[in-house]
């Protein structure tokens, strides 16, 4: 029979994907190993003091007198005021906490606290004092101009 001739199979085209998969896995491993995530980093909110040309100030509103924490370097601090303040940064957190108005002290929780380091004090020491004030529970902690 002439009409029963078999049709040829449709051509089977297949890409060989093996080498591509190899390369893609190599890339994947490279990027997994090469990527570092910022684990263990934390960021603090900071309030910048008002500088010249900064925010408008309401002339009728009385500003709270800021609590100044002077950072002198080597862990030494000074807090001018009518109290027996610690001279080392280790005692800063417990002192500020004991002075909170809700713990029987005289400093309001939203009173501005200004960290005022000396100009050659390292950033580590400045942040240490800043951290102590934040850990004591105050809401408005910021940096001020350096002492000298």
């Amino acid at each position: 029979m002439i009409g029963r001739r078999r049709m040829p199979d449709p051509a089977r085209t297949e890409l060989n994907l093996t080498s591509m998969i190899d390369v893609v896995f190599q890339l994947l491993i490279y990027f997994i190993v090469g990527t570092t995530f910022a684990m263990g980093e934390q960021s603090y909110r900071m309030d910048l003091p008002e500088r010249e040309g900064g925010a408008e100030v309401d002339p009728l509103e009385l500003d709270d007198e800021p609590i100044i924490v002077q950072v002198l370097g080597g862990g030494r601090i000074r807090i001018p005021g009518p109290w027996n303040a610690p001279v080392h940064v280790d005692g800063l957190e417990s002192f500020l906490e004991s002075q909170r108005s809700d713990r029987g002290g005289i400093i309001e929780l939203d009173a501005p606290i200004r960290i005022k380091p000396r100009s050659r004090v390292s950033w580590q020491d400045a942040v240490q004092a800043f951290n102590a004030a934040v850990a004591a529970g105050y809401q408005t902690v910021g940096f001020d101009e350096s002492i000298d």
Binding site: G40, E41, Q42, S43, Y44, M46, L48, A55, V127
Partner: peptide
């Protein structure tokens, strides 16, 4: 910005170690 710019300080917490 009348309220100023929000600045966050980035610090290292201890669990990262010497990474």
């Amino acid at each position: 910005r009348p309220e100023g710019v929000r600045v966050n300080l980035v610090i290292q917490t201890e669990e990262r170690g010497e990474d």
